[in-house]
Design a protein around this nucleic acid. Structure first.
Length: 793
RNA sequence: UGGGGCAUCGUCUAACGGCAGGACAGCGGUCUUUGGAACCGUCAAUCGUGGUUCGAAUCCACGUGCCCCAGCCA
């Protein structure tokens, strides 16, 4: 965690290597940066949810991996949405997740004065101007995706006038909307973000921190890059929707912080199935009273998951397991639940609770008789896997397994789970049935002799005989003593929505009559509400064994066979016992048809397009003639088409063909030089290419060597043939040399040889690759493969 | 249909021209006084079509699909 070196030790890094760590590695290697500084920059306009937790974890853990630091920053530049409640909530949540930013807590609102000065600087340099058109007019002037924008009448105001107007904006001389400050970048850019983005707007709103000090507020695109630079951030990580904004980021950096500037990198967001992470929609749930608050345990917020009993370790584990890529992804809920269970399995002592009680009378146990059983808190496997041979008491004290027990009293009257008894058991039912037997956990086997049924047909009581330890029984069920157990409320949580992607599914469904108006109140589409799971919270009243009364209030339990629970921090820590179910146990019986607990999945996994056979691009008659001309010179159709469409490439090829044979050069131009030529970065001359291809034809070198040489030539600017000469590159076709190499590779990988002979013919590539590597790519691959086939048999 | 981004088992992810690997989920089994956990086995993928190459998930071309951008939100 605190390696002094600014490099990451591969063995114990928190974040798996990814495209961002590759950039950091390269930056450190090249010396562009000497240390790593990241930042997690939420806007305090809502509570942190699991999607943010992913971003937060990524920033803090990458910094930790490189011995750098990560700042926490509030991007609080929009007073209308933000509040102290949210700012404090965000800090609480980040801290609870286990992250430490030391003294590096920043608020954009603390820097308004500095931002203001940077804005004046831009104005003075003619890079920003005060625009005074209406909101609507600005929209019109911005143009559309396919048409360029046009300058407003104010775009060329003088510096002095701009400075004066900007100062008066700040002084409160104008109403909201009268003026804005805009960057003067490029109104014709294909990137809409660059069409003179607004830098400052007038807002007469009280800011939760700066109060009424300001009536102009900076926009994200202006504030964020500057703040990164002021903090000394080296790698500014954000999500994919900001890719277009990077152009502004870079523009500002070039203007204001040309040296030692931060760079922005974007990663794909992570959402979770069966929930939503849109802050506005979550707010809708809270404000609409659909849930009890931001910390309602059904919510995907960190506050809610914390209240529900999930640990920060589980969330961090989840965050690091879902990986970092450049694709937005919706993660399977099962992945999250697994992380939660995996964490709880080793930290939750086992006790018994009955959630939906059914009275059982043990007819052969005397009235008032009590037998005290000593039952272990931990199952055999947790005990066995304990590193030090000790296990924890709920108090946290570590004791020998024999001492990690609690008293459980067996009495004449008990409660069992209603689900654990069935008059007509489904196939495979391993619990109690009329006349059947079952083991009561830790107490022996019972037989059901009699079933009492109420007027409505509901089973009200079972009369059973306690048979003792050795009687046969197929299953084990949990129970509590009716006279000794404590009454408790159980809150059983399930997924918030009934479909994996409520937002997308809401768009799929045509609004029914009269729903359209109800479904789009207050600018937020509320169509997703129709998929709310009515069973996301089920409350039951039952009983829990009395030992829990003596445990620390924040003990997380596994109620055996029922799930992981703890006492609700808000409603369940007083005299009444209220337990939240953190997560269920995996239940392989439930989906067996015993219960219809099959999880509804989306019907179709998004069928991809039927993919018609591509007919190739449309060509003009001239291009068609070109294709024919190239075809006649032994160029393949695909390559001829590329050449016909791209004059730059065909010109290069024609030039090379003056020295070599066009038909043999075409594929090199198209496949290997096409990229650099198009980008104007090509450093290989037509003559250079022709000379190189000659070397292949006279078998001096292989195509493989040629590709490597070309790549080197692009960076060094040397002639390809010069590189071949200087490095003494020659293809190796000598059988004896190659055989020796092959023998060595085979001797080193006897298992692979065997596997190949056993039928894994794909391994031929492995052997060929090994030989190629060993010869620095100079072996003649055809010869190598022939020899390999012969030797491997 | 202007610009940008992305596409690998059901889901998440790895492989950086040379064995398509792992995790979750599923299925089967072992074990079990939790229908839990653990262990073993198994199913299962390179968006499509061409091209380059001895060899392509990876390079080239053409398609297809999804996502983002026209707030004085972030």
């Amino acid at each position: 965690m605190s390696t002094a070196k600014p490099t990451s030790n591969d063995r114990d890094r928190l974040v798996n290597p990814n495209f961002i760590t590759e950039v950091i590695d390269a930056d450190l290697q090249s010396g562009r940066v000497g240390h790593v500084v990241t930042r997690f920059p939420p806007e305090p306009n809502g509570y942190m949810h699991l999607g943010h937790a992913f971003a937060c974890t990524l920033n803090f853990q990458i910094a930790a991996d490189y011995g750098g630091r990560c700042h926490l920053r509030m991007d609080d530049t929009n007073p209308e949405a933000e509040s102290m409640e949210f700012a404090e909530g965000l800090q609480n949540d980040a801290r609870w997740l286990g992250f430490d930013w030391g003294e590096h807590l920043y608020f954009a609102s603390d820097e308004f004065e500095r931002y203001y000065e940077f804005a004046r600087e831009l104005i003075r340099r003619g890079l920003a101007y005060v625009d005074s058109v209406t909101h609507e007019e600005m929209g019109r002037l911005r143009g559309t995706a396919t048409t360029p924008g046009t300058p407003s009448a104010y775009r060329d105001r003088g510096v002095e006038e701009n400075l004066d107007l900007f100062a008066r904006m700040r002084a409160g001389e104008f109403p909201e909307g009268a003026h804005v400050l805009r960057a003067k970048i490029d109104l014709t850019s294909a990137n809409m973000k660059l069409r003179d983005p607004v830098l400052y707007r007038i807002m007469y709103a009280e800011h939760y921190r700066s109060g009424n000090d300001w009536c102009i507020y900076p926009m994200y695109d202006f504030q964020h890059p500057i703040q990164d630079a002021l903090e000394g951030v080296t790698h500014s990580l954000c999500s994919l929707e900001y890719v277009d904004n990077r152009a502004i980021y870079d523009w500002l950096m070039e203007q204001l912080f040309p040296e030692a500037r931060p760079h922005q990198y974007e990663f794909g967001r992570r959402s979770l199935e069966y929930t939503i992470v849109s802050k506005r929609k979550l707010r809708k749930l809270v404000e609409g009273g659909v849930v009890a608050g931001w910390d309602d345990p059904r919510m995907p917020t960190i506050a809610a998951q914390r209240r529900r009993g999930v640990t920060p370790e589980a969330i961090r584990r989840f965050a690091s397991q879902i990986g970092v890529t450049r694709t937005n992804r919706a993660v399977d809920l099962a992945l999250y639940e697994h992380a939660v269970r995996d964490d709880l399995n080793l930290r939750a002592p086992r006790v018994m609770a009955v959630l939906r009680p059914l009275r059982v009378v043990l007819t052969n146990v005397e009235e008032g008789a009590e037998q005290t059983l000593s039952l272990p808190y931990w199952p055999h496997d947790v005990v066995r896997e304990s590193g030090d041979g000790l296990v924890a008491l709920p108090s946290g004290e570590r004791v020998t397994p024999g001492a990690a027990v609690r008293d459980v009293v067996l009495t004449r009257e008990l409660y069992i789970e209603r689900d654990d008894f069935a008059v007509e058991p489904p196939k495979g039912f391993k619990r109690l049935t009329p006349g059947g037997t079952v083991r009561l956990r830790g107490a022996g086997v019972v037989r059901c002799d009699d079933v009492t049924t109420g007027e409505d047909g509901e089973v009200t009581e079972l009369r059973c005989t306690l048979l003792g330890e050795d009687a046969p029984a197929r299953g084990v069920i949990h129970w509590v003593s009716a006279s000794r157990a404590l009454p408790a409320e159980f809150r059983l949580y399930d997924r918030l929505f009934t479909v994996p992607d409520p937002e997308a599914d809401a768009d799929d469904v045509e609004p029914q009559d009269g729903e359209a108006s109800a479904a789009s109140v207050g600018h937020v589409d509320t169509g997703f509400m129709r998929f709310l799971n009515p069973h996301a919270l089920v409350v039951t009243r039952g009983f829990v064994e009395p030992s829990v009364a003596s445990h620390p209030l924040d003990t997380r339990y596994q109620f055996e066979r029922a799930g992981y629970f703890w006492r609700d921090p808000v409603d369940g820590r007083g005299d009444t016992l209220v337990f939240d179910r953190i997560v269920t146990l995996k239940d392989t019986w439930a989906k067996e048809g015993g219960r219809p607990a099959g999880r509804e999945r989306r019907a179709e996994p998004g069928t991809r397009a039927a993919a018609p056979v591509s007919a190739g691009p449309d060509l003009t008659p001239e291009q068609r003639a070109e294709v024919e001309r190239f075809r006649s010179q032994d160029v393949s159709e695909a390559e001829a088409t590329v050449l016909a469409r791209e004059p730059q490439l065909s010109a290069f090829l024609e030039a090379a063909a003056n020295v070599g044979e066009l038909g043999r050069l075409a594929s090199w131009v198209v496949n290997d030089l096409g990229g650099p030529i198009r980008e104007g970065a090509n450093r290989v001359t037509p003559e250079g290419l022709a000379a190189l291809v000659k070397l292949i034809e006279d078998e001096t070198i292989t195509a493989r060597i040629a590709k490597d040489v070309l790549a080197e030539a692009q960076t060094s600017g040397e002639t390809p043939a010069g590189i071949v000469e200087r490095r003494g590159l020659r293809q190796v076709s000598d059988t004896a040399t190659l055989e020796a190499e092959i023998d060595r590779v085979m001797a080193e990988n006897p298992d692979k040889v065997e596997a190949y002979r056993g039928g894994r013919s794909g391994l031929l590539g492995f052997f060929a690759g090994q030989v190629m590597k060993a010869t620095g790519g100079q072996a003649n691959p055809r010869v190598v493969q022939d020899l390999l086939r012969a030797k491997l048999g």
